[in-house]
Design a protein around this nucleic acid. Structure first.
Length: 818
DNA sequence: ATCATAACGCTTTTT
DNA sequence: GCGTTATGAT
């Protein structure tokens, strides 16, 4: 083929492929057709990210790199060129045959890996892929990080010395193990908080250190506390290893180590996965980053999708750096931005943009929409949390819309209780996600623990959980003795238990042996009967169900229901995985409540803003918008954490399609105390013209949002103390009022006309010298009043000019002392 | 061994 | 304020 013809071929091919994705906008289409090499997809909220991911996979399976290469299959000549050009011009229909001519090495489903964060996202991806591709969609690896890792580890765990039937510990299990370790080392939980110990272990794993390496490093510090911590971490790791168990972090940690230390395995997966896509890349932590980099290291066809403004898991070790520095890591990376929002109305989007604009650490992006402005955002200031809940319920009731159109988002799970009560009273269907999760319930964990022990008797944590549940007369004294023996002899606890009657000092030996025999018999039965029948037999033989039935109490009734509910999850799993106990336990270990969300059910959903990520609703209530609650009191003193809270706010606002309500309460009972909080600073960052203020505190609220004093001095309503540290520090409405700046007239004067007022509140004028915590010394260049706040332009001595919102900046800034 | 009461601490957010 | 755990009494 001549070069001119080759060009014509490529152009016609591209046109035909583009025709398959005509429903997308140009940027989306470009994202779908850019298949080769590293790609950074900056996808704003509601920009059709999942749609793009689906179409990308469709494109890869149908055309391979056809849309993104200059290669022409050797079999194609003049005849094929003619066909393609005719099809591209619309003269002949695009048949399968013509499509095949456009393909260059189409990918097989199992060569495509799409990693998400949540099971829910993975499930949605899977079901939409199945819809688009039929059976082939099922073979695409669409799963969570943890799911991907456990699948790899199941295959290669032996290389790490783990059994391939290793169990997965959730955080409650991990915590239990850690507590036991501390107890055995005679360390007090008060001075050695188990959670802090787990956090240390997590950090070490994040740095890819083995327990020994971590210990060696800490020993070099000569700090006895750090050394002891490292020793605890090592003991913890050993304990998990002995039990054949991995915690959530281990799944990633060991997978990364496996790939790093075994070139053959790395090679296998690098070749297997021709295309790697990673969703929510802004929320990846270092291990996940390493995992992604390793997998993509061969062919370098890695597509990461993310939105730096939606990074809300820093507390969990996510580093926004991963997305911010993607272009540095891959010099030839292509970047595509999706900024058109298909979800929300104009006012909602404007509010979201205005709020997030106050953050400094961002790539910068502005969402836009073709939709109209829509309703204003309603800001309702309630008297207290009951009033707030009633407002929400009343609004839903009066709307005439089905309950499922609404979502209530809050900062902490604890806030759901009031709402729940009110909704019960008003008879509105609701469903709460998160909080005490189904799989965290004691009875569910108990029954699962039985199944775990049957599957893997070395699982000491689960074994200890159930050995005396229901009561079998195996007391703590005998148990401790047996545990000590197991440790001395270096054998598993189960082994000692099964011959415990020969042991001195173990009074319950016979009962222990009996228990082991029962487990052994159940193990026999696994292969003989279907999993659901087996489940019934476990409930029966262990006496667990009987124990619940004999005790009266209504709470046992719901426990029995929960156990039945668990059976339905087994039946569901049997449909997918064919009823393998190990497969079921694997699935359940990584399961969360979110995954059972049924969109069709007519319920208003209540959840934290974190769990709402990736979801959308026609109407959203953002409740508890109070300083100290949201943003959380813990983040108020730290600029970076404050920015994370603001991103969370951005996520919450952008969940709404048509209407957003924001509510706060003047007083709220929280953690057993009543506190009075000011409305969230984020509400002040929304341009006032987008807000419709309602509620009892309306007048005061309006006063508060005016910062201009009579003499024109600009000051903060937060008083001279530089903010507050605890929500409880404002014990009453009166204390709060003192901090309200009264205004007698509308603020009209320019900041340049400022005369110094005798106020103790910090105030700033053009020309003032200031010191900023993060940016150092500088001088105020410009002050522009803006929506109850003011925009400051500050020229820092570093030569950098920064634009900061006064209310935010003043927390980290003060006048230079002369 | 089991139950009852008291003390404690915890609330960010999740796989 | 609530749920979990520690302690003590039966």
């Amino acid at each position: 083929m001549t070069e001119a013809n080759a060009r014509r071929f490529i152009s016609a091919r591209r046109k035909i492929i583009e025709g398959d994705f005509a429903s997308l906008n140009p940027e989306q289409r470009r994202a779908v057709l850019t298949t080769e090499g590293p790609l950074l997809l900056l996808a704003g909220a509601g920009s059709g990210k999942t749609t793009v991911l689906i179409h990308r996979v469709v494109n890869l399976l149908r055309y391979g790199r056809g849309s993104d290469t200059e290669e022409i299959p050797a079999s194609c000549g003049e005849e094929e060129l003619r066909l393609l050009e005719q099809a591209a011009a619309g003269e002949i229909p695009v048949t399968e045959e013509i499509r095949a001519l456009c393909a260059v090495e189409p990918a097989s489903p199992w060569q495509v890996l799409a990693i998400t964060f949540t099971n829910k996202a993975a499930d949605e991806l899977k079901s939409r892929l199945e819809k688009a591709l039929g059976a082939a969609g099922q073979s695409v690896w669409a799963m969570t990080f943890h799911g991907t890792c456990s699948r790899i580890l199941r295959r290669y765990a032996e290389r790490l010395g783990f059994p391939s039937s290793f169990t997965i510990y959730d955080q409650a299990d991990s915590l239990a193990v850690m507590k036991r370790v501390l107890k055995e080392m005679n360390l007090d939980d008060r001075t050695w908080p188990p959670k802090a110990m787990l956090a240390a272990a997590e950090r070490a794993k994040g740095a890819l250190q083995t327990p020994d390496e971590f210990l060696a490093q800490e020993q070099a510090s000569r700090d006895i506390r750090r050394i002891r911590t490292a020793q605890v971490c090592k003991a913890y790791a050993q304990r998990l290893f002995d039990a054949g168990a991995m915690d959530f972090d281990d799944l990633l940690y060991f997978t990364v180590r496996l790939l790093k230390e075994n070139p053959d395995i790395l090679d296998y997966y690098q070749n297997k996965f021709r295309y790697v896509q990673i969703d929510e890349y802004q929320d990846t932590n270092h291990l996940q980053y390493l995992f992604a980099s390793l997998l993509a290291g061969g062919r370098r066809n890695i597509c990461v999708v993310g939105d730096d403004d939606q990074s809300i898991y820093k507390f969990r070790g996510a580093t926004i750096e991963n997305i911010l520095s993607f272009e540095k890591q891959y010099k030839d990376a292509r970047v595509i931005r999706l900024e058109q929002n298909y979800r929300s109305t104009g006012n909602i989007l404007r509010a979201a943009n205005a709020v997030i604009a106050n953050n400094t650490a961002r790539k910068g992006k502005n969402l836009w929409t073709q939709k109209g402005s829509g309703d204003k955002i309603t800001l309702y200031v309630a008297q207290n949390e009951d009033d707030e809940a009633r407002f929400v319920a009343r609004t839903i009731r009066q709307s005439g819309r089905p309950a499922r159109d609404f979502a209530i988002l809050y900062r902490t799970n604890a806030q759901s209780r009031n709402l729940e009560l009110t909704f019960k009273n008003m008879g509105i269907n609701y469903r709460i996600f998160g909080g005490t999760r189904f799989f965290d319930r004691a009875e569910v964990k108990d029954v699962l623990a039985y199944l775990c022990v049957i599957a893997n008797p070395t699982d000491e944590t689960r074994l200890l959980r159930i050995i005396n549940v229901p009561a079998r007369g195996i007391g703590s004294t005998s148990l401790e003795r047996v545990q000590a023996i197991a440790r001395e002899e270096g054998v598993s606890l189960f082994e000692v238990l099964s011959s415990a009657s020969h042991r001195p000092g173990v009074t319950a030996g016979k009962k222990m042996e009996e228990f082991c025999r029962m487990i052994g018999e159940l193990q026999q039965r696994i292969s003989e009967i279907p999993l659901d029948e087996f489940y019934d037999e476990v409930l029966d033989r262990t006496g667990y169900l009987a124990a619940l039935q004999t005790k009266n109490a209504d709470e046992n009734l719901s426990r029995i229901e929960n156990i039945q509910e668990l059976k339905s999850s087994i039946i569901k799993s049997m449909e997918n995985t064919g009823g393998d106990l190990y497969a079921y336990l694997d699935e359940v270990a990584l399961y969360t409540d979110m995954d059972t969300y049924d969109r069709e059910e007519d319920c208003t959903v209540m959840m934290t803003m974190h769990s709402a990520k990736g979801l959308e609703f026609p109407v959203v209530f953002l409740v508890g918008a109070e300083d100290g609650l949201f943003p959380s009191a813990m983040s108020i003193s730290d600029q970076e954490e404050m920015e994370e809270e603001r991103r969370l706010c951005y996520v919450a606002i952008t969940r709404a399609r048509e209407k957003l309500y924001i509510t706060c309460a003047a007083q709220r009972m929280l953690y057993g105390r009543t506190s009075a909080n000011l409305p969230s600073r984020f509400t002040d960052e929304i341009p006032p013209e987008l807000l419709d203020r309602q509620g009892v505190e309306r007048r005061r609220q309006q006063e508060r949002s005016s910062y201009w004093d009579d003499d024109g001095a600009f000051r903060s309503s937060y008083g001279g103390s530089g903010g507050w540290s605890h929500p409880g520090s404002y014990g009453s409405g009166a204390a709060q009022k003192k901090n309200v700046v009264r205004t007698s007239a509308a603020p009209t004067r320019k900041p340049s006309a400022i005369t110094p007022p005798p106020a103790k509140a910090p105030e700033f004028r053009v020309g003032d010298r200031i010191v900023h915590k993060a940016f150092g010394h500088g001088s105020v260049e410009k002050l522009t009043p803006m929506g109850g706040d003011a925009l400051m332009e500050i020229l820092f001595d570093s030569g950098e000019t920064k634009r900061l919102m006064l209310r935010i900046a003043m927390r980290n800034m003060e006048k230079e002392s002369s």
